[in-house]
Write a protein that binds this DNA or RNA. Structure first.
Length: 283
DNA sequence: AGGATAGCCTGCGGGC
DNA sequence: TGCCCGCAGGCTATCC
């Protein structure tokens, strides 16, 4: 088995994580022969996880399935034990054998047939969580997440926004409202639905919530189909860069011309995050 | 108790 | 050319 590829890149939001999940398909059904923990502090344990860290990381197990909720990934073994992967800002999962020279390789799995999987994360905003079962992981972590952003309905989004005075941009970044949207796709979805990011969440009319829901689905789906991020250091499993697959219309374009009206896009800080919008198209 | 804020961490790009 | 500084931001803890 030669190099399979580099899976994951910068600024992972739902589409990037979904791309990683799909790209990890080769590990399903394979046995984990060994796990090397090079940096223990990237791993947290949920009560009930195997007290032996390598076993908790699925050493000796066969991989049964790959799950995703929002931006989080879970690798489930046949025994039911799971490893949650959070990519954070700079996390990657590498599949193949040609990555020994890379720095920040925190955990390395050796699987059957010579396949190697590596978790690397230079900034360490991400990490791994080991749990005895999906139910344990859900109880400790996933239950606090809102509906997955790809599946959320207008009614569910409306319920998450009800009574909330904060800006819609802040609400979209809140993973307990919906899971999977980060700064990039929040701005893109608000642009597509013509909603100003500073609008109080509870002030959105039902029609706006419906449009926003559609826009969230659309921008995420489009990004998944394009193979994940558009950012330059993202590399798809086939080794081709994902760059330029989708052009962001507002993210990173403050001061530039709106692709719809030609006006100047405005760059502000909202909810501690750089936010770009069109003052003409977004009311 | 919802919501705002701080802090974690490294790579990179702009400016000089 | 090379150095320095600011910025990027998902998530958790903490505070109000």
């Amino acid at each position: 088995m030669g190099e399979v590829g580099e899976v994951g890149g910068a600024m992972p939001e739902l589409p990037e994580v979904e791309s990683v999940r799909r790209a990890l398909a080769p590990i399903v059904g394979r046995k984990v022969l060994a796990v090397e923990v090079r940096r223990r502090d990237v791993i947290t344990e949920v009560a009930g996880a195997d007290s032996n860290l390598e076993r908790a990381l699925l050493a000796g197990e066969s991989i049964r399935a790959l799950h995703r909720h929002g931006k989080q990934l879970a690798i489930e073994s046949r025994s039911g034990a799971v490893v949650r992967v959070q990519l954070g800002m700079s996390g990657q999962v590498l599949l193949g054998e040609t990555f020994a020279a890379k720095s920040h390789r925190h955990v390395v799995w050796t699987l059957a047939s010579g396949l190697t999987m590596t978790f690397r994360d230079p900034r360490r905003f991400g990490g791994l969580t080991v749990a005895g079962s999906l139910a344990d992981l859900a109880r400790e972590h996933w239950e606090s997440l809102g509906p997955d952003a790809l599946l959320i309905t207008p009614d569910e989004l409306a319920a998450g926004l009800r009574g909330s005075a904060r800006a819609i941009k802040a609400a979209l970044l809140d993973q307990s409202v919906l899971a999977g949207v980060g700064n990039i796709y929040a701005d893109e979805a608000l642009f597509e639905s013509g909603i100003r990011p500073s609008t109080p969440a509870s002030k959105l009319k039902p029609a706006q919530v419906a449009r926003l829901t559609d826009a969230i689905h659309q921008v995420l789906q489009q990004a998944i189909e394009a193979g994940g991020s558009t950012l330059r250091d993202y590399v798809r499993p086939d080794g081709l860069p994902g760059e330029a697959a989708v052009a962001h219309k507002v993210y990173g374009r403050g001061g530039q011309a709106c692709v719809v009206c030609g006006g100047e896009l405005r760059r502000v800080t909202l909810a501690q995050r750089t936010t770009v919008y069109c003052p003409t198209c977004q009311r």
